[in-house]
């Protein structure tokens, strides 16, 4: 399996000094090549899960492992992407894509070649000399995906990468991300608050409770076209899945 959380609990010291439990006894696995989404109310510790997978901090109790290896620091097998594209504004697109390769002992020509390859896979060929400010929001997120793929990660972590985009761009970008991820057969963990997005893009969805976050449901999305959300979107079952998520999150009770 690609990613495993074994009874993971994470506590933080809050500013007032008391201990705050962000996630509690989270336990799940992601198989190789699988696309799993994590949904939950805001503040339920979704991003904590992501940061622990990336190795930015360690669990208080339990263990996180990637490809069978315990994660105890920044991990070269994990690529992550946030809502912000985090492109370096002073670098052109191809140098941005190369950024993650620069600590890996590759020579310049090899880095360039690898970066060109992923840029083409992300349909950004021809834009390698552009600077980030010259690209649209959607293209910038595609460049960020290219940077993430360039390091050949075993697992990709996506933290709400589409939430800052307008509705149309979002649909197109979900489609292009799904295609690229399917082509490259990457294991992916998507953190999102968009229920439809979770249904359209995933093989499996984990539903987290409110803080302290813990997995309250696991839904297998048994629908075709995982690599093409625009097609999956037209299936009637999609709304049933979304309704199911909706009820798990007890959103009716909160509506008024």
């Amino acid at each position: 399996m690609a990613l495993e959380f074994k009874h993971v609990t994470k506590q933080f010291q809050s500013n007032s000094g008391e201990m705050l439990t962000a996630v509690k006894d989270v336990d799940f696995r992601v198989e190789k090549g699988e696309f799993v989404s994590v949904v939950g109310p805001s503040g339920c510790g979704k991003s904590t899960i992501l940061s622990m997978t990336a190795g930015l901090y360690q669990p208080s109790i339990g263990e996180v492992s990637v490809s069978g290896e315990r994660v105890d620091g920044p991990n070269p097998h994990v690529g992550f992407m946030l809502q912000k594209d985090l492109l370096l504004p002073w670098r052109d697109i191809i140098s941005n894509v190369e950024f993650g390769l620069e600590s890996r002992g590759l020579n310049r020509a090899a880095r360039r070649a690898k970066a060109m390859e992923v840029l083409n896979a992300c349909h950004l060929g021809g834009f390698e000399q552009h600077y980030p400010y010259q690209l649209s929001g959607g293209m910038r997120q595609r460049a960020a995906l290219a940077r993430t793929l360039a390091i050949d990660p075993e697992i990709i972590l996506l933290d709400e990468p589409f939430s800052a985009l307008d509705a149309q761009t979002k649909l197109l970008l979900q489609n292009s991300f799904s295609k690229v991820i399917a082509e490259q057969q990457k294991t992916t963990l998507l953190i999102t608050h968009d229920l439809a997005e979770a249904v359209l893009m995933s093989d499996r969805i984990l539903v987290l409770s409110e803080r302290p976050g813990t997995v309250i449901a696991e839904i297998k999305v048994d629908l075709p076209h995982r690599d093409e959300p625009l097609k999956r979107r037209n299936l009637p079952e999609v709304s049933e899945y979304a309704a199911q998520l909706f009820s798990y999150l007890k959103l009716e009770e909160k509506a008024f």
């Binding site: 990336a54 190795g55 930015l56 920044p74 991990n75 070269p76 994990v78 992550f80 946030l82 912000k84 985090l86 370096l88 950024f99 993650g100 620069e102 600590s103 390091i151």
Partner: peptide, 21 residues
Amino acid sequence: DRDLVNLARAYSLTRWQIFVK
């Protein structure tokens, strides 16, 4: 931007590389 620094850390850049890059 702390997120940029975290990104660099996740890519295993050294303290000096983070400063320069």
